[in-house]
Amino acid sequence: MQDLLYRFFHNRLAVFGSALLLVFVILALFAPLLAPFSPYYMDTNAILQAPGDVHLLGTDNLGRDILSRIIYGSRISLRVAFTSVTFATICGVLLGISAGFFGGLIDHLLSRVTDVMFSFPEILLALLIMSILGSNINNIIIAISIVYSPIFARIARGAALNIKNSLFIEASRSIGVPNRALLLKHILPNIMPPVIVQITLSLAFAILAEAALSFLGIGAEPDTPSWGIMLSDGYAWLELGWWVSVFPGIAISLAVLAFNVLGDSLRDLLDPKLKNVG
């Protein structure tokens, strides 16, 4: 473990990714302190102002400060991403381990279900789920959790299968170690590396997915300072106010980049045998 930490902090990619992520986490946690204005405050004397002294990144067509909205937007993006990926990880890993370890009907059923879910393009599945549940932030979280559970299930199942058949486990079984202990003490720790890498990748996708769903207008209330909604608003003002679209887009890209960089470096560190399959 210590060795891992040492290697982590000496890996340039890992440090860069974590630093970038830290910036966003700080922005999200301390938004009220860091943002110069309230994200809802409309300064009617500063409609669609270009980036300048008072409004560093400019204002949108209702006079709201873009910088403040981006800072508060990080709250929404990170909250949606972390919550949905946490749910997806827990559900997916539990189901996957059960399927891999116990095999039989559970395994068969899970494989079919994950096959089906993988056949749906992600955005489409999320849209479908939201058309049933309704449009709000909590449903976005639920939809994204459902969409990303299968990948965790598949990874956990694969890793569980590999380990299950190892001699070590057979030996433990033969001396009567109960299943639960096997699961917790041996299988779980061994599936951690690919799961951790996948977590960072899914976090990246979750941010993109939330932005896409908000951009499509399926999601939160129109005045929510979500990056996706800001992009959608800005699209109508591309010519008269490029800053309304450019800065939120940069924010999204940087946040997603942070997770992707972290994911890449973790993959290199934790399991160099894992192929870089994007």
Binding site: A204, L208, A211, A212, F215, L231, G234, Y235, L238, E239, W242, S245, V246, P248, G249, I252, S253, L254, V256, L257, N260, V261, D264, G278
Partner: peptide
């Protein structure tokens, strides 16, 4: 490659419209 997978495609589209079209 890293930038490519991080940039949202709808934003890329908007930026292209802004520069190449408008």
């Amino acid at each position: 490659g890293l930038i490519g997978i991080s940039v949202p495609n709808f934003w890329l589209g908007s930026m292209m419209i802004l520069t190449l079209s408008l």
